[in-house]
Computed example of a mutant assay.
Amino acid sequence: MVMRWWSDRWTQSAGAFFLEKDAIFFASARDFLAGVLAAVVITCWNLAAVERNAIVQASQKPYQTLSSRYLYKTHKAKSGRNIHDASFRVYRSSPAMAELLLFEDIFTITGIDTDGKKFDKVSRIEARSEQFDMQLVLDVNIDVYPIARTDKFTLALSSTLRLDGTPDDGVFDQSRKKSLADKYEYVMYGKLYKYDDDESGGAIKIGVYVSFGGLLMMLKGDKQHLGNLKLDQRLYLLMRKV
């Protein structure tokens, strides 16, 4: 009887001990998981705050342009739509950007599809530049990049999208590395297939013709502003509205 009594007491005590240990373990595990969850929430909040600050700083930083007379700021919303601020200030371009771009100017649209619309998703725009007085005729995929008669835009030409100026192979880089394209809204890649001189009117002007997969561009003006462009050269066209 005594032995049985001691056995029952030991069993009850041991059971209570293990139940207590299990309760402590589960309470500790619960507190641990709650701590991990709180740490994850705090980390995500801090990362979101950093991203918001980066977006604000980027929106306040002017895009670089070759023209020292103009500054146009463009902000991109999270939806992907572009919100344009037409205010401008005096700005000095960086030498690195000047070396990277073969041409850049701000254009005012003078006509859209003046010969009639040929394709539903493509419009042919005519424009003239403000600084170099260049004449432009350009096919734009308006399904991807809508454009209106009242729009003004910056157009640039470059042989590479790499910020260090090294040549690229013309293939879309999915690594999300920073590139020249980040400073613009619409980019095409093509080949300069025709180059001609126009000496009418006294001043020597040249015209360059580029095909971007069938979308054509004609850019004509003073030779000194297009002297860096060569026949059969591969080019990027980059645009952003101002």
Results as ranks from 00 to 15, higher is better:
65 T>F: 03
96 A>V: 08
154 T>N: 06
142 I>N: 05
193 Y>N: 13
187 V>C: 15
158 S>T: 15
240 R>G: 09
76 K>C: 06
100 L>V: 10
70 Y>G: 04
25 F>W: 11
48 A>W: 05
17 F>C: 11
141 N>K: 08
192 L>W: 06
128 R>D: 03
112 I>D: 04
138 L>G: 08
231 L>P: 06
152 K>P: 00
126 E>M: 07
119 F>R: 14
1 M>Q: 01
132 F>D: 13
98 A>W: 01
183 K>I: 04
86 A>M: 06
166 T>K: 12
171 V>D: 13
132 F>S: 10
156 A>E: 09
52 R>S: 05
153 F>G: 04
97 M>K: 12
69 R>V: 02
94 S>C: 03
124 R>T: 08
75 H>N: 08
172 F>P: 05
78 K>C: 07
71 L>S: 12
94 S>G: 04
110 T>F: 01
58 A>Y: 05
3 M>F: 00
126 E>I: 02
9 R>N: 04
58 A>D: 12
101 L>W: 09
191 K>Y: 10
146 P>S: 06
31 D>L: 12
153 F>M: 07
242 V>S: 09
54 A>M: 08
192 L>N: 13
187 V>Y: 00
84 H>M: 01
68 S>H: 08
94 S>D: 08
220 K>H: 11
117 K>V: 05
77 A>S: 07
228 N>S: 15
134 M>D: 07
91 Y>S: 06
76 K>Q: 14
128 R>Q: 10
24 I>G: 01
34 A>I: 13
53 N>E: 12
55 I>G: 02
87 S>P: 04
151 D>R: 02
208 V>R: 00
179 S>I: 02
185 E>C: 07
158 S>H: 09
99 E>V: 10
27 A>L: 06
105 D>N: 05
68 S>Q: 11
172 F>I: 15
